[in-house]
Amino acid sequence: MNLFLQMFPAALIMATPIVIAALGGLFSERSGVINIALEGIMLVGAFATATATILLSDTFGNFTPWIGVLVGAIVGCAYSAIHAFVSINLKADQTISGVALNMLSTGIAIYLCQLIFDGQRTPNFPTNIAKISVPILKDIPILGPMFFNNTYPTFFIAVALVLITYFLMYKTRFGLRLRSCGEFPQASASMGINVAKMRYIGVLTSGFLGGLAGGIMVLTTNIQFSASVIHGVGFIALGCLVFGKWHPLGCLFTGVFFGFSEIISSYSGNIPGLSGLPTEFFYSIPYVLTIIALILFAKRSVGPKAAGKIYDAGQR
């Protein structure tokens, strides 16, 4: 039990960027645009966050990490605009566009890092997001140490985003219109809905959340930025989206599950029966579980019917 209580806060740290990035994928795919570029968007957002945190530390002091995260989210949004334009206006294949952005992001990050910091890594961050302990709540038996003691506030931001996304998707006219564009865009257009506009909103929101996830990840799990800082978390977030059946609450619970798979290597030596296995085995677990989840749930989890399909206003 003590081992589980130690692992849970660490799992929440890793789950936070996964959940937020999965929510980004949800907005995009619910609008009808597949966003495989989440990995690249997270990387670009992480670099922008790291750069802003280093360059602005003297100006904003302890608030710098939050300014940096906001900058990362905005840059992620701007980067996703490329995917939106190519997929919606130019009607290009959405999968190819996403893969291209993933490849481009690595080159951009390394080039700019070399240009600004004269190396492929940034200097160590002068300040990171600080952990917090919530008064009174931290003293609750079992739940207190798991959720409210010495933890990053970013997890509570992720939970808040899940609830906001649920409300927007299922309790507002905007959410109904967005989901209709991902299911029957021609029918949506016949009702006066601007499908292209809704899809732009979906993709740009996806980019904002993806950049936010990258920024949070680099400031809570690292002391400096490098091109390998995201290491496949964007793709894990896509698996989380499928596993969670394109639902905000599903993304939250599966994100925590994948968060556990990410940190199990750090505690493998204390788990009976696993201490003798090589470390590389545990590092592969998140990606193996992602593949298994896709195999088991891809057919059962039915996503938006028009996701990935080019919208043709003349098609019926």
Results as ranks from 00 to 15, higher is better:
54 I>K: 01
239 G>P: 06
250 G>S: 04
135 P>C: 05
284 S>Q: 14
165 T>Q: 03
139 D>C: 03
34 I>G: 00
184 F>Y: 15
249 L>M: 15
97 S>F: 01
176 L>P: 06
184 F>N: 13
81 A>D: 08
282 F>S: 01
57 S>M: 05
263 I>P: 03
123 P>K: 13
283 Y>L: 14
134 V>T: 09
222 N>G: 00
29 E>V: 12
310 I>E: 10
300 R>G: 13
252 L>H: 07
238 L>P: 00
174 F>W: 15
141 P>E: 08
41 I>W: 02
13 I>A: 13
282 F>H: 01
37 A>L: 01
145 P>D: 09
156 F>I: 08
43 L>Y: 06
83 H>D: 08
152 Y>T: 00
134 V>W: 05
129 I>W: 09
82 I>L: 13
117 F>M: 08
147 F>I: 08
60 F>G: 00
18 I>L: 09
228 S>K: 10
11 A>S: 11
257 F>A: 09
205 T>K: 04
305 K>T: 13
277 L>M: 14
155 F>N: 01
50 A>K: 06
197 K>D: 12
119 G>P: 02
46 A>T: 11
153 P>A: 02
31 S>Q: 05
293 A>T: 06
139 D>P: 02
219 L>A: 00
296 L>R: 02
304 P>H: 06
113 C>K: 09
314 G>T: 15
173 R>K: 12
215 G>E: 04
281 F>W: 10
80 S>Q: 13
84 A>V: 08
308 G>M: 10
201 I>T: 10
269 G>H: 11
164 I>S: 11
115 L>F: 14
232 G>H: 05
93 D>K: 04
181 C>F: 13
315 Q>I: 08
259 G>S: 01
128 N>M: 15
40 G>E: 03
218 V>I: 15
14 M>T: 09
272 P>Y: 07
316 R>F: 11
213 A>V: 09
144 G>R: 03
224 Q>W: 14
140 I>K: 04
181 C>Y: 04
54 I>E: 02
8 F>P: 08
283 Y>M: 12
244 G>W: 07
250 G>Y: 05
261 S>M: 15
251 C>I: 12
107 G>K: 10
188 S>L: 05
14 M>E: 12
138 K>Q: 14
235 F>T: 04
117 F>E: 09
134 V>Q: 02
311 Y>L: 11
40 G>F: 06
152 Y>Q: 02
316 R>D: 14
130 A>F: 07
85 F>K: 00
149 N>D: 12
266 S>G: 00
42 M>Q: 07
131 K>S: 15
207 G>C: 10
52 A>G: 11
159 V>W: 02
156 F>A: 06
25 G>D: 08
146 M>V: 13
278 P>Y: 03
38 L>Q: 13
38 L>Y: 08
39 E>F: 08
153 P>N: 03
265 S>H: 14
239 G>F: 04
249 L>A: 12
273 G>R: 11
103 M>P: 00
290 T>L: 05
201 I>M: 11
288 V>H: 10
14 M>R: 10
267 Y>W: 06
24 G>L: 10
185 P>S: 01
209 L>G: 01
231 H>T: 13
111 Y>D: 01
208 F>G: 00
